[in-house]
Each structure stands twice: as C-alpha cells, then as structure tokens.
Amino acid sequence: MLAGAGSMLMLAAIPGTARAANAMTAGSPTSTAPGASRASLITQGTTLVHADMHNHTVMSDGDGSADAAFASMREAGLDVAALTDHATMFSIEGLSQSEWNTTGNLANAANDPGQFTAIRGFEWSHPLLGHINVWNTSDFADLWRAGSTPSLYRWLEGRPGGLASFNHPGREVGRFSNFSFYASARDQLVGLEMFNRTDDYLFEGWSSGMSSPLVACLNAGWRPGLTGVTDEHGTTWGFHEGKGRSGLWVTENTRAAVFEAMAARRCFATRVSGLRLDATANGVRMGQVLGVTSGDIRFRVDLDRGTVWDGKPLRIQVLRPGTSAPTVVDVVDTLCGSVADFTVPLDAADGNWVVLRVSDPELPNPTPGPSGHPCNDFGVAYSSPWWLRP
C-alpha cells in the first residue's frame, strides 16, 4: 500500500479525467460528496467533523442574508460552521452591536448539540496588517478598540477561552507585522489558513520575494493548527467544491468539544469535501509536542475519501523549516483509502516543527514556489504541525 519515496505509480484522475479534477477547483456550487467514514484507523476516542469557520453575510461585505447561512451550511453536509463578519475596517462598514447580537441569536437557534454546531465569531480586519478571525468571545473588537495586532492580542488575553486564527496569511502586505511573536497569545492563536477559497497559501507572496507564510509563522514561534475555509461572500454557503474546509477530531459535536479540539490543534486543512486525514508521529497526534530532540520518527497517516477516491494515488511531503520556502525532507507515495507508515529522521537542531502536506501528483500547483520544489504539485491537505522539544 505504501510505495517508497522514489517509486513511480500509475496515476488515476479524479473520477473521469484530469479535466474533471481541474473542474473540482473552480468553486462552482455542487453537493458535497458522501466521503469517508468518520472513524480514524490509527487513533481512538474522537470522531471527525467537517467544519467551515470563516463566512460572511450582508452584515459586512457579503451578499447573503445571515438568516439563511447556517441552514445552507448544514444542508451542504457541514457539521460545524461559523459566521465571522468583519468588524469595522476604516472605510468598510462592519458589524454593529445589534448585528453582533443577531449573529449570536442565529447561531443559538441553529445550534443542535450532537448533530450540528453553529458558532458566532468575527473577523478583525486591518487593510495592511492582515485579518484575524476570533471565536468564543462575548464581545468583538474593531480597529478603534484594537488598532494593531499587539493590541488585539492583549484584547484576546483578557477573554480566556477566546480563540483566533491568522486569515489568508500573506494577502495583506504587513503579514501581522511579519508574524511578530507575542508569547502570551500563543495558546489562543490556534489557526493558520492554508486554504482560503480555492487558494493554497503555502507560497503566497513568494514570487514577490516574500517567504512562505507557513515558514514565517512557525519559525516566529507561533503554534497554530492548519485550517481551510471557504471565506464565503456569496449566498451558497457550504456548497462550493474545491474551496477550503477543515477537519476537526472531536469527542462530540458540541461547541465545547469543537473549541477543545481547536485549542488542541486536532485539525487539518483541505479543499476537498469528505476527506479524512489523521496522523501520528511516534504515536503522538498532529498538533502536539513530540518528546524528542532527534531521532527516527515513525509517521502513520490515515487518508480516505470514500469510494470516490478509493485507491487514488496521492503523495505525502514531509515539510521542515526553511528560509523562503519549507524544506522537504521526504516524499512518500501512497494510495487514498490506506494507512501510510514511514520513518523519517528529524533533529531539532534543524528546526522545531514538522508538517505533512498531501498532494495530487497529477496536477500542478497554481501558485508554485521555487523551481523544482516538491510542493509545486496540487495541494489536497495539510496536517497540523508537530513540535520537537525544545
């Protein structure tokens, strides 16, 4: 089931042809595929839920009425969904206090513990520094109350239980003051969007001389889980195949359990519906700290998308710290619907994090990095990082 890094496999297209695979990324409305079962083949005690934590309505710069959003996302097959309209962004009108209250009421009405988790959040928005989603707070902050990222981090510190994410990292030129590290906010910054809409952000800004947002963020000292979102601004919430979404490994489908999984970084980013990704390193789940400084690390990766991708060739790239782009220390060919099992030597002297990227080797990365880089193929998913000790 597992082929060595150098092996060549016959490549199968997404049902039909490569043309169909390309069409999958176009963002056209479609019903979500049934996908894989929700039980991991390599861990116990949690269940997979499919989540989209970044969506907009007419209460900021979206087109659709907030009254319809949660129902649309549940109908599309999502298990967890959030509305995160913009707080005020200079000339762009954002949430008012009454709209913030309305979002909370809509989330409470749609919330169905055990079946569907509806969440209220907001998007703090600075036109130069960047945008940050915040969830699980009783109030919201805009540019007038938190006009810089350190101010927002201090605001967040005052709200224990509040969680946040770096959104579309690198789209705004300031890049959160180039991911300047604020240690006391580290535990609450639980997300880094690797897929936003149809875009893979691994090499965002690279062609303009900037470093990979993943490398900049993790090298700075932040410890986010990796996520995907649709960042929906239209009226078809949840129904766009090929846009980002997240997988969360939860003990139950409730708000408390969802926030616990986010805080534990038990999540992955993808842009295909119905995907199951679970991964361990020396038995430790993604998102956690490994109790080693160096040595051979055994990875096990459970990948499945149900019958639609059964046996489809995929590739796993082992990403390590670099400068402008991540260093790839191993590439493993595998088949969807199987458990990949491989060992890679790691040393904290080379950097303290490791991420697994899953790709489709048949398709190109629309936003490639350096010439010949192994991640210049089509990104399907990212595991959350592991951190070596110290």
Rank of each mutant, 00 (worst) to 15 (best):
W100N: 03
N101P: 02
T102H: 14
A107L: 07
N108I: 05
A109K: 14
A110G: 08
A110N: 11
N111F: 11
N111E: 13
N111Y: 13
D112H: 14
P113C: 08
G114R: 08
Q115D: 15
Q115W: 12
Q115E: 14
T117L: 03
A118R: 07
I119Y: 01
R120A: 13
G121P: 00
G121I: 01
G121S: 00
F122A: 04
E123P: 00
E123I: 01
H126W: 08
H126S: 06
G130M: 00
H131I: 04
I132Y: 01
I132S: 02
N133Q: 03
V134F: 07
W135K: 01
T137D: 05
A141D: 04
A141K: 02
L143M: 15
W144Q: 12
W144M: 07
R145M: 13
A146S: 10
A146F: 07
G147P: 06
S148M: 08
P150C: 06
P150Q: 10
S151H: 13
L152A: 06
L152T: 01
L152H: 07
Y153M: 15
Y153R: 11
R154A: 15
R154T: 07
R154E: 09
W155L: 09
L156W: 05
G158N: 11
G161D: 06
G162N: 04
A164F: 12
F166P: 00
N167T: 14
N167S: 14
H168C: 03
H168D: 03
G170H: 01
R171K: 14
R171V: 12
G174E: 11
G174K: 06
R175V: 02
R175M: 08
F176M: 05
S177H: 09
S177R: 10
F181S: 04
Y182N: 09
A183K: 15
A185V: 08
R186G: 05
D187V: 08
Q188I: 09
Q188D: 11
Q188G: 03
L189R: 01
V190K: 02
G191S: 12
L192M: 14
E193A: 04
M194D: 01
F195S: 00
F195L: 01
F195N: 00
N196K: 05
R197F: 11
R197K: 13
T198P: 02
T198Y: 09
D199P: 00
D199K: 08
D199I: 05
D199Q: 09
D200K: 08
Y201E: 09
Y201F: 12
F203N: 11
G205V: 04
S207R: 15
S208M: 12
G209S: 14
M210Y: 15
S211Q: 10
S212C: 14
L214E: 03
V215E: 10
V215F: 06
L218W: 04
L218C: 05
N219P: 03
P224T: 03
P224S: 04
T227G: 05
V229D: 10
T230F: 05
D231T: 05
H233I: 02
H233K: 02
G238F: 01
G238V: 00
F239N: 03
F239D: 02
E241Q: 14
